[in-house]
């Protein structure tokens, strides 16, 4: 389970001065549900997810993941999450199997437990054919499958996806989407950021529209339709965002 309370992140920029990247973001995501963060580029989605993953320290606010505080117990938080983003790369000079093994070891696994888990993932994600091939020789689709295996080798109860299909072709995107759905079936807690409306409609149980670092609206896809009186998530998103822009003016 993920519970975030008033997560805020500010940083100093030479040109722009003090920038509020994320402001008072609160969210709750439950096991077996997919929580989507929908927003344009630069809206604050990645910063929010990086705070949840303990990559960035919040300026204010906090969150608990699987019962561990991101402030007080970041190492345990990281032990309980799997993180996958579209820009995630692999170590080119390791083989696919070595890559999965490395992250298993970093998560405290070893011996027969690790070997059997790798074998299971290799079979489940159909990596067997290229498991001993170097990662820099793999196709994009093969790399994504290895990335998935890497992110779940330690069987985390929480999965964080940061624009996982960004830059991928349709076929590879489908693999990722199917994997996210599988995470829901396996009762994992899933937080997922995207700017692609169709992905939200297909995957998310709960959506938060993020704009300029704040949650502008949230609810199920149906709730957002009802709130805006629109029939598509794209139109609902634009109405909410344009409404905020108009208020700013």
């Amino acid at each position: 389970m993920i519970v975030a309370e008033n997560l805020t992140k500010t940083f100093r920029d030479k040109k722009r001065g003090l920038v509020k990247a994320v402001s008072n973001v609160s969210l709750t995501s439950e096991p077996g549900k997919i929580f989507g963060l929908l927003g344009a580029n630069g809206a604050g989605k990645t910063t929010t997810l990086r705070m949840l993953a303990t990559l960035l320290e919040p300026t204010r606010g906090t969150a608990t993941i699987a019962g561990f505080s991101i402030r007080d117990n970041p190492q345990e938080v990281r032990r309980n999450i799997g993180f996958l983003s579209g820009s995630t790369a692999l170590y080119g000079r390791l083989t696919a199997r070595e890559m999965i093994q490395y992250f298993g070891k970093l998560n405290g696994m070893s011996g027969p437990e690790l070997t059997s888990r790798i074998d299971e993932l290799v079979e489940r994600l159909e990596i067997g054919e290229f498991q001993n091939g170097r990662c820099d020789k793999l196709s994009t689709g093969q790399k994504q499958r290895v990335s998935i295996a890497r992110s779940i080798v330690h069987s985390p109860p929480v999965m964080i996806f940061d624009e996982p299909t960004s830059g991928l072709d349709v076929m590879t995107s489908q693999t990722i989407m199917a994997f996210i759905e599988q995470c829901r079936t396996d009762s994992l807690t899933v937080v997922f950021s995207t700017h692609i409306m169709s992905e939200v409609e297909r995957l998310c149980d709960h959506v938060a529209i993020v704009h300029k670092g704040i949650i502008a609206a949230e609810g199920s896809v149906g709730d957002l339709h009802a709130q805006t009186g629109e029939t598509s998530i794209e139109k609902a998103f634009l109405k909410i965002v344009n409404g905020m822009e108009a208020e700013d003016v």
Binding site: A53, L55, Q75, E76, R78, I81, F83, T88, Y91
Partner: peptide
Amino acid sequence: ERGTMETLLVSPAS
């Protein structure tokens, strides 16, 4: 540059 740093930092290794 290659984008593997984030993956490593999100592991339990401090």
